[in-house]
Computed example of a mutant assay.
Amino acid sequence: MKKRKVDLVVISDVHLGTFGCHAKELLLYLDSIKPKKLILNGDIVDIWQFRKSYFPKSHLEVIKKVIDLSAKGTEVFYITGNHDDLLRKFTDVKMGKISVLDKLVLELDGKKAWFFHGDVFDASIQNAKWLAKLGGWGYDILILINRFVNWCLIKMKREKFSLSKKIKNSVKKAIKHIQDFEKVASDLAIENNYKYVICGHIHQPQIVRKVNKFGTCLYLNSGDWVENLTSLEYHKGKWNLEHFQKENYEKEVVSTEEDLSEIQNLVAAITITSKQ
């Protein structure tokens, strides 16, 4: 496959080390691009949910791929999130072309862009970390159940669906949380004269123009690689929200038999963890 040249790519919320991570799909996407800059905007490795019993080869290959990209000239910025907050001890450390940061400001074609993960706006993270971690475990189990359900649906030649998206979209409080998040981020960006504000954290891919009485900015969210499989691309002065589509790639991602085998491995991992 011929690699697409891209000025800048933003990926967030990969959650390597969890059952829901779509590492194989992410590898296909990373193999298809040649970015000048790669911004990993938080929650790439899920240290909160990390367990010795579950860290597949494909998850390690994602880390290797990022290192390979940096070795070939791509400038990599790793912005820490809440699930990989232990890396904040290494803020401002630079290893070759890989930098670890809490936030980042870049100038893109004369316009300032502000990149940060977004967990700073989340009261549940700041004030009750243990509760947030418990919620993360529950979310992981929900994703595992969803994979099994979708495997059954594929066997019956029916369309897949997302349990977590359905729950989020039916809960008014969740919708309001997303709206509040976008408003706070964009208001702060406008106040500080940033033309772009780019976040992750809420797993809600988005590109939308935000306006208040003081000005305007473009709010962008890179989504995630658990449910949405999305990234942001900036090239030749334009932003694009890229949705991973299996049929756009030459190699097959995963067969249904492999899916079932993986589900069995995931169940075994949960069993081992629960006994620890």
Rank of each mutant, 00 (worst) to 15 (best):
I263M: 07
G118L: 06
R51Y: 08
Y139V: 03
C199V: 13
V45D: 02
D84I: 05
G136H: 13
S70N: 03
K210F: 07
T74V: 06
G118E: 04
Y78W: 09
L232Q: 09
K183L: 08
E182M: 14
V254Q: 14
D31G: 03
K210Y: 14
V76I: 10
S12K: 04
V253Y: 08
L134S: 12
N41F: 05
C21S: 15
D13E: 08
E233N: 11
K37D: 09
L86P: 05
W151T: 08
I207V: 05
D13I: 04
L241F: 01
E247A: 09
Y139Q: 06
S70G: 02
L60E: 11
G223L: 10
K195I: 00
D259A: 03
V14E: 03
I79Y: 06
K89W: 07
G110I: 04
V208H: 10
S231K: 01
K3C: 00
L40S: 00
E242D: 08
A268P: 00
Y54L: 00
H243T: 04
A128N: 15
S124Q: 12
V253L: 13
K3I: 02
E247L: 03
F148I: 11
I33Q: 07
G42K: 02
Q264K: 15
K172W: 04
H59D: 12
D13T: 06
I270M: 15
R209I: 12
G20M: 00
M156S: 11
L108H: 07
V66I: 15
G96R: 03
H117K: 06
R158D: 05
L8P: 01
Y219M: 05
C152M: 14
K155Q: 12
T273N: 08
K2S: 10
K275H: 09
V208M: 07
I272D: 13
K176A: 13
D31E: 15
D68W: 01
T216G: 02
N169G: 15
I141K: 13
L142P: 00
F161A: 11
L69Y: 03
K52D: 04
E25M: 09
D92I: 00
A185S: 15
K57Q: 12
S58M: 01
L220H: 09
E250Y: 07
I270F: 13
K34H: 10
L134G: 14
I145R: 09
K103C: 03
H15I: 02
L27C: 06
S186W: 06
N169F: 06
V197W: 05
L86V: 13
L30H: 07
L60T: 06
G17N: 03
L30N: 04
I202D: 02
K275Y: 05
G200I: 06
S32T: 05
W225Q: 12
I47L: 14
